[in-house]
Design a protein around this nucleic acid. Structure first.
Lengths: 222, 222
DNA sequence: CGTGAGTTTGACCGAACTCAAATCATGTGG
DNA sequence: CCACATGATTTGAGTTCGGTCAAACTCACG
């Protein structure tokens, strides 16, 4: 149940202060980009929310931690996804790179300025937040009402949608999947094995999954 | 596991068309108010999202339904809470009155108009959505990582915060609580009984709970 | 190759679920 | 006002799904 120990190499804000940045332009608001290594923290829960982030490449997880180490990953963010938006001054989750990732940053102050003049920008920001909310609501059903088999099937399909391919690369560890689906790594592993026995998928190795019977998965995803 | 049958007396939009409305002003945007009886539907998932709603009195639940009837209540809305905000044209959840409730309505078109001119209004709308998102994230942890005891304790405390009193009125049924916490009614009931045996609470009747040892509840809520 | 983290598998356990019966609450008609 | 009918809640007994603990396996890296 305990989340594995994570090394905190530094936050985006800290690295920014250290000058480890690559300037670029982003969206319609100027920003810059940063690279984060595997498991590197992008921002921490409770930290000052000075930036909004966008995945350029790689995968990012955002999560909340309970006192005793139980972890709930609220979302994985893929290229094109924006994350770290907050109304309050503090981040309500921690964000880490799942694999080496390039992330675009926009200063929140700049964003605020532009939303005060530009109703379109304001609406875009709201729309992003609202999409997050929709994802959370779907996730809520999954965590509250679905079986392990259904959770894993839903997860695989959502990954497949990301990739569109027949064979899906799994960028995250079993621990990440478990903490996202509200299961243990053993249950995730067993469920994948079961799906393979049922010939719904094939797993050549633990980071690669071939969808063999998408109908079966769709049925399970409900 | 099946949600109990619900009678659909009509939607807000339909009633509006029938003229069953009480005109009033709401927030900084003019709107009107409606009364809904126990279990009456306010809007349905997939229906056109023509209004945004605010609880004046009573309690409202919003939920999603799976094909086979499994239900996940995403939130209870109490007086002062705004619900039914959508970016898309369709409601992503169903909303029903838990008890007789008076609800304020604002036309979305009016809201859109005002957010295009007024950056403050736009930000207020975004802030509301963002608060919903925060609630969802906390709920996510509860559904994914907490035990039945912890879920029920968290729920009681959140109700108590609504009321601020020592003795808490429970407006919703065990079924509602179960579908909110991702449990069964039997588990909810047993857990409440256990908390009573532990002297953490007292339940004079099934719709009334006295908080006896808030420290214990806080500890469980983690 | 050897080492160690990550993953899979096995055996067992326990929290929550299911099914069923008893109890409580609420509203209705006599 | 009481007695009953109906639905909601509680309690009980037994089951099961997913968790825990432990061992075996895999694979990437030095």
């Amino acid at each position: 149940m305990l989340a594995s120990s994570r090394h905190e190499i530094g936050t985006a804000a800290a690295a920014h202060a250290r000058g480890q940045i690559h300037v670029t332009s982003e969206l319609d608001i100027p920003g810059f980009a940063m690279k984060f290594g595997r498991d590197e923290e992008i921002f921490g829960e409770g930290e000052s929310a000075d930036f909004v982030y966008k995945v350029h490449s790689g995968v990012v997880r955002t999560y909340r931690l309970l006192d005793d180490g139980r972890r709930q990953i609220s979302a994985f963010h893929f290229p094109g996804d924006v994350f770290g938006i907050e109304v309050d001054d503090e981040h309500s989750t921690t964000a880490e790179a799942v694999i080496e990732s390039e992330v675009g940053l926009v200063k929140r102050s700049a964003l605020n300025r532009s939303t005060e003049n530009d109703a379109g920008a304001a609406r875009a920001l709201w729309a992003l937040t609202s999409r997050h909310l929709q994802r959370m609501q779907r996730h809520l059903v999954l965590l509250g009402r679905k079986t392990a088999l259904e959770r894993v099937a839903s997860f695989l399909l959502s990954l497949a949608k990301q990739e569109g391919e027949q064979t899906v690369a799994i960028p995250m560890s079993r621990m990440d999947i478990a903490d996202y689906l509200g299961l243990t790594i053993e249950t995730v592993s067993r469920t994948l094995s079961q799906l393979e026995r049922e010939a719904a998928i094939k797993l050549p190795n633990c980071r690669q999954i071939v969808l063999r019977d998408r109908g079966r998965l769709d049925q399970l995803a409900a």
